[in-house]
Design a protein around this nucleic acid. Sequence first.
RNA 1: GGAGAGAUGGCCGAGUGGUCGAAGGCGCUCCCCUGCUAAGGGAGUAUGGGGUUUAUAGCCUCAUCGAGGGUUCGAAUCCCUCUCUCUCCGCCA
Length: 435
Amino acid sequence: MLEIQQLRTDLENVTATLAKRGFNFPAEAFNALEAERKKVQTHTQELQAKRNTASKQIGHAKSKGEDASAILAEVAQLGDELKQAENQLEHIQAELQKILLEVPNLPHDSVPTGKNEEDNKEIRRWGKPRALDFEVKDHVAIGEDLGLLDFETAAKLSGARFSLMTGGLARLHRALAQFMLDTHTQEHGYVEAYVPYLVNQDSLRGTGQLPKFEEDLFAVHAGGKSNSEDNNSPTFHLIPTAEVPITNMVRDEIVALKSLPMRFVAHTPCFRSEAGSYGRDTRGLIRQHQFDKVELVHIVHPEQSYDALEELVGHAEKILQKLELPYRVMTLCTGDMGFAATKTYDIEVWLPAQNTYREISSCSNCEAFQARRMQARFRNEKGKPELLHTLNGSGLAVGRTLVAILENCQNADGSVSIPSVLQPYMNGLEQLRMA
RNA sequence: GGAGAGAUGGCCGAGUGGUCGAAGGCGCUCCCCUGCUAAGGGAGUAUGGGGUUUAUAGCCUCAUCGAGGGUUCGAAUCCCUCUCUCUCCGCCA
């Protein structure tokens, strides 16, 4: 959420900046509502002040045993007018809030202006794609030929965009998550968190998934009843990323200055409906309704958030370096950034079968955008509450990392070499091979 | 699932219709005193919004005592619904 003051005082700039990311801010509607709000709010508060002083006089008079009927009669007339004004004000503020909640964050100055992913800017590459002198298989073929990856059975169990892994592949998947968690906790100073996978709507509003992106989520109701059947059962949503529960840890909190920066890492499944991506990445593990991710979250002093972003990307990159997987780092352009971000780096890993780099991590600074929605603050140097800055990034998407390993480490005979850093997690196993 | 008790400011805790945004204590900040330490004295110390303003200063004002509704001129206090916490029993991983 943007600061409403900024919209009031600097609307032209804000509108122009939002246009860079393809967002059309309804400036006229906003201005009209704002004018109305100011009028109605002032009026409401005047009436409230009048009522308050009169009520105090009544109390005062009664405590002295005096007659208060004159004031009483006078203030009784206020009731209807006040109620009407209050209702009107509430309505206007709800309208304003509705607009505000759907406005994306303002891109940082350093972000290249552009329309879509073609305008993203590569800032560095690491590693060289291995030259493979045999016919390269994609991860689906590799996994299925090994007899360890089974989409057909997954479809029977659940449907499209689910996967079933068994044996060494399932273990490799687990090994990856463990390895990432260990690296981030032991080498990068993160605090490990185990978090709920079902969250309430306040949490999703806090990080920005709601109200705008509800169709991307899976909703869950206790007892299987939807809200229309049973108004009393609260709606939960499956987390689309651990960013939601972790970041919301500080929702409605004022944390101490000395507790900053906070850094958390969590390994969770993530659930996404993938509405609107029909036909994209339908093959394989790239785009699933359920996937595992190791997520990194920083909660920091506003002055430190851009340094923190660089560190965060570095931590994610470190995983790929240890796995010896070639990648490149991209700065997303204004048109390709997510809703809450001011600046985002994507890490793209090399996938030989697709002969291209594919996103495996996305690291964003949200500045105070989420903190404002969450009322997540810290007590600053002057002792005053101030909004925190929040950052999040994948470190990394486990399923996609598995894809990268299968494809980059495949051998001519159909086996897959296990990266040496993972072997200790695999009981020393060096290769996945056909049984 | 059954029975009961709760939810108040950074923390503890008083407050059952009227100058209560909230006593008291602890903590914290500033000042004074004390040649160290300990102790003592004084002042201050919630958050969000709006108006005014060059101003995140000041001033005025509104809201907020778990959340949402209601009664009332007036609600932390009364009524209703919900959420959460705790205790006991049952069940369960």
